[in-house]
Every structure is written in C-alpha cells, then in structure tokens.
Design a protein around this nucleic acid. Structure first.
Lengths: 357, 357
DNA sequence: TTGAAAGCGCTAACAG
DNA sequence: CTGTTAGCGCTTTCAA
C-alpha cells in the first residue's frame, strides 16, 4: 500500500560510513565488475573467468581490501559460519591449560578459524557469564573445560549444539556425560592408579592432598577415587586440603600437616592434586631432613618441568596437555567440515615413576 | 526511475533464516513494542519508560535472547565498536607470555571486550598472516608482541590505528619506536644490567648464551647490549647460541660448550637468554661437580618457578609478566573510553640475586 | 518516550 | 560466467 506515497523527495540523510576501509563494492568498481563477482572470486575462484580473476586480483591488491567478517557471518546467518572457536579455560597462566590452548591455536592455524579465549578462574558462574558474552559472536564451535557447568551454561551449550556448533568438553572423559563431545581422560581412573601405585609399593598409610581451589572438580574427583581405591584395599587415607597460597608454598605448608609433633611423617606416602604442591612438599621434606621416598614417598600429578629436575625426581602422572588441544582442534574442524558430531576421545596418560616413590 | 515497474508481483523466495535464535524483533513482539525500543533498553535503559522496561525484561527472559554481535558491530560500522581485542603472542605455552595473556584476559573481564588470540610461533610472517585474518573482525584494539613486524603487518597496524583502534606493542619499550603504544621494558637496559651485575661481582671472563629461537629479537637485543656493556669495560664476551632443543636440555648442552677439554669452565660467569637455559646449565654444572657460583656464576632471565627452587637459587631478572597484561588491558580500555591514544608505559623489572652469582 | 526508514557489507537465491 | 535482488539483525538518523 505505501506505493502511492512513493515518489516523495527523500530528504538527504547523513551517510553512515565513517571508516575508510575498502569494501567489496570498491574492489568491484576498480575491477570493472560487481560485488558478487569479487565475492565469488574470494570464495570459489574457479567459478570466475581467468581475465576477470586477474583484474580482480589487481584491484584487491590496489585497494588493500580486507574482508569484513561481521558482514560475512551475518549474511550467512543460519549456516553458523562465523568460523570463530570460543574456548573457556579455568586459568591461562596455569601451564597445564596454556599448553592445551597452544595446541588448539596451532591446530586452528590455517583453517580460517579464529580463537576467542576467555578464562573462567575456576568458577562456573564466571564460565556462564563469559559463555553468554561469547555466544553473541555465534561461534562455530565451543570448547569448555570439564563436565561441570551451571544450568545456564548448559542451556547455552545445548542451544549452540542444536544450531550445529560442535561443543567439546576438554580435560575430562566420563561415561555419564550429558552428550557433549569429550576429549580428555577419566580422572577417577587416574586417582585409582595413583592409589594402586602407592599400595603396590607396599605403603599402608596414605594421604591425599587436595587442591585448595574449591572448584577444581577434577582434582577432587581424583582424590575421591584415590581414597575409594585405597579403602577398598583396607587402607585408610588421610585427606587434607592445601592452603590457598602460591602452589609451591602451599605444598610446603601441606607437608607440615603430614608430620606429628616430633616432625615424623604420619603416613608413609602422600599423593597430591598437582605437581607444584608435590614439589613444595618434596622441597620441604628435604629441608627438614626427611628421606624421600624412604621415610615418605610423594606422588604428583601433571608432570611439570620442575618435578623432573629435582633430586630425587618427582613421580607423577604425565598428561596429554598439548595433545588435548591438538585433538580438539582436529575434531572440531572435522565436525565443521563433515557436519557430523565429533566422537569422544580418551587420551592416554602415564604414571611416571621417578625417585620420589 | 524504477518506480514505474514497482507493483510487479514479487515471486516468493526461500527465506534465509535457518537458526532458531530469538532476534530483537522476536523480543519486541513478545513485549508489544518495536525492535528499536528493545535495542534502546539494552543500551540506554534509562531512556525507556518503566512499564515498557518491565515488559521488555520479561520478554528477554522468556525468549532467552542473546544479542547478535556481528549484526551490532556491522550496524555500528565506522565507530569501530566490535569490542574485540586481537592479541598476537609468540607462544602461549611459554609461561612468560601465558601470564601476560592471563593479565590481559582478567583485565578485559567485565568490560564487554572479548579476546581474540593467536600465536605467532616467533615468526613475523606468521604474525602478519594472523593479523590479516584477525583484522577481518575489525578489532577495537590490537595487541602485538615486540616492535619488530613485517612491512605488511605494519600497514595493517597503521590502518587500524588510523580508524581509531589502539595498537599496543607489549614486552618492549624502545625510544626509536614507530609510534604505537609500548608497554614493557627496555631489553638493552636489562642486558646492560646483567653485564654490570657480573662485572661488579668481579667477573672478567664472560659468556652470553643466546636463545636458539632465531626470531626471539628481544633475547638477541639483551645479548648485544650485554656484550657491548662488557666490551665498554674492557671485557670480552664469548657468545654462544643454545641448540634448538627443549630449553632445559639446551641449557645443559650449552654448559658443555662453556668448558675446556678438561671440563674446566672457560669463563667465570655466564648469562642466559632465559631461566630455562640457565637452569639447565646449573643442573648440568652440579652434575659435573662444577661449583656454582665459585667456579662458574650463572645468571638467568625471567624468574621462572624452577630457578627459585634449585639450590643454589638462580640469580635472574624478575619481569612484570602479569602486570604487562593488566596494564595493557587497562590502557586499551581507557583509550577506547577516552578516545585518546594510550601513553607508553615502562614497567619495572628487578635483578634478583640468589645463590648462583 | 517511541517509531519508521535506511543502511552497515556481505552472501543466498535466482535469473540471464 | 556474471548480475540483480533481497535480506541477515542490528543501530543510526530523523520524525512524531
């Protein structure tokens, strides 16, 4: 109906474009074609004639054109083609996750995918917040850490998955998972293996020193499994929680709690939530003249650089840190390319015995 | 002119929307207003009437609306409002940079800015490639590492700056810089301080063990300054390049090159491009029964965890790793808010003497 | 305080 | 092989 009032003289409006960046239309004008042809050249070069292609190539170089990805993603809305990967990691500074991010970034390099990274500081609330913010970019894939998330985060993850975006939980692998792809390993299994290692070496009084980070669920899970496995073999486990200090200091402090009033170990072996705690304990034991492993055996988790260099070397669990990131990148790219959900992957870890057990 | 042909019956076309996500229009319909009012509610809540606001709030919750940031950024084109920060880091796994990224991510948290991260693997070519890809998102700010970039990267950085996006070079601070904001410290100054420390302690035969990474320009710069400072005081410096192996192993190997055929040190003190190299050398010296620091003094750079825990502790240069990231986040947010370019910041480092010198 | 119209830069769909 | 048209979801501008 508004056709009747059509020829009203449009008042001149202020133009919206402020920035000076070349657009597809600019390139097209320079090449003597229309925008769609340039767009095609960029995405399906074989579909434009050789001569046209050459002209476009020159125009592209002359204008210094950089495609506007917001516009591209918006125009392809529904196809989920932002080609951004949103990754949520508890802590970037923690070397354990830094390597995973490195593997992810490396694996994404050259794939046309960009990495949107946020750190949750081991808080499920903050994870939800960050996830909500990142969802605004319509990421093509989502990587989260572990399998515990807030209800709100789960809603977002499911929504993303139902639009076809792969959602991958890294660093964990657990049978009762809720259907997102998991790439990691079973922490309970590691906890049991840690207990078995100490029991098999004859230890009958054990301790597990858990992480002081309340929401480090995977550490708690290893601890519970460690205790359950020992209990099943008739051995009691003394469970401590490391103080919330810098990890090596926390480990030193934890060792003190493993000694009686005379400074003698209360247990014959202790396992730790991570290598920094274990190294702190090892250093403190040496400072106090407690023989490791004879008076007290110590077992870490993570295989950090430090533990390898101490004497005796720290026995620990070596993890596929970089591999998790690489496998995640490969899995999500395959899923994006093939349209199929990525299968779970259980990556191998190994218990490395050095001098401390 | 096309007005005449206007009332032609439009053929029904296939709709483009595939995804099921709620749009502003959906929320508006649910709230009984139009899209623009919802948009205003989201950005300037005080400008909508209380009753309307309440209805919109309910509609928002009911629909689970998540704003589409591509559309938002596109509509605001020119204002540079993507609120994405593109960061290019040589290596994420390297703890030195991981902490900077952590500081950056933490500082950005809650600001409405997202972090787009890429790792360049110490290659200026790869840096340019990644930068070109990230520019497609029209980042509101750009963070690059160091002051050496390819000509193509510089073009992109200047273009971004001229659109008003702050461009910050981190981890370096150098007077002859090309006008991007720098947040870091002067590596030549550190190199000179390292030389002065060893000279002041009476050493007259020195070595500098440089990084085996060809494009670790900052390490080379420290090395050159170290050598120049020593030369100026009449002391020759033996310069070696660590092999391209895992850093601690490389340090062990480097130590061997500092010994004569009889296994005696060729110099009385050696400085290293980083703590991992220095720690490797320290461990190897101990293994060979070379007294540190009496027979050979060792000085690192970076203050990594490992060096603090060895005995003797490694003397080193403590760096504002986290602070660089935090300061960068603060600077770019201030610049974005104020429209002014961020000033350079020279952050403090300290030479920490422990037992190895 | 709210709305209509236009347009950001690109791509999907459909013609030629 | 290339072009036309419409529209992605949002915000800007201007008008009421």
């Amino acid at each position: 109906m508004p056709a009747a009032s059509r020829p009203a003289p449009r008042p001149a409006r202020t133009p919206r474009r402020g920035h000076g960046r070349a657009t597809l239309a600019d390139v097209a004008a320079a090449a003597g074609v229309t925008a769609i042809t340039v767009s095609r050249y960029l995405r399906e070069p074989h579909r434009v004639a050789a001569g046209t292609a050459e002209a476009i190539g020159r125009a592209l170089a002359a204008t210094g054109y950089v495609p506007n990805k917001q516009a591209g993603a918006l125009a392809s809305a529904g196809s989920g083609t932002s080609r951004m990967v949103a990754a949520l990691i508890p802590s970037i500074a923690n070397s354990i996750f830094a390597e995973t991010v490195q593997g992810l970034a490396d694996g994404l390099q050259g794939s046309g995918c960009e990495l949107l990274l946020a750190s949750t500081n081991y808080s499920v609330e903050r994870e939800e917040e960050q996830l909500r913010a990142l969802m605004g970019w319509f990421p093509s894939a989502i990587v989260v850490t572990g399998r515990r998330h807030s209800p709100g985060a789960l809603v977002l993850m499911r929504a993303a998955r139902s639009r076809g975006a792969p959602v991958i939980e890294v660093w964990d692998h657990h049978r009762s998972a809720r259907g997102f792809t998991q790439i990691g390993f079973d922490h309970a299994e590691v906890g049991r293996a840690m207990a078995a290692h100490l029991l098999d070496r004859g230890h009958r009084t054990l301790a597990y020193v858990d992480s002081g980070v309340a929401e480090d669920f995977r550490a708690h899970e290893r601890g519970e499994a460690f205790i359950a496995a020992a209990t099943a073999r008739g051995v009691q486990v003394r469970r401590l929680v490391a103080p919330q200090a810098e990890a090596i200091e926390a480990g030193r402090a934890a060792l003190a709690s493993l000694l009686d009033a005379q400074g003698r170990p209360l247990v014959s072996a202790a396992a730790f939530a991570n290598d920094h705690l274990a190294c702190g304990a090892l250093l403190e034991a040496q400072a106090r003249g407690i023989a490791v492993p004879d008076a007290l055996a110590l077992l870490g988790f993570g295989d950090f650089v430090l533990g390898r260099q101490l004497a005796p070397g720290l026995s620990t669990v070596h993890l596929p840190r970089l591999e998790i990131g690489q496998a995640t990148a490969a899995a999500l790219l395959a899923s994006l390319a093939g349209g199929k959900p990525a299968p779970d992957q259980r990556l191998p870890w190994t218990l490395v015995r050095r001098g401390s057990t």
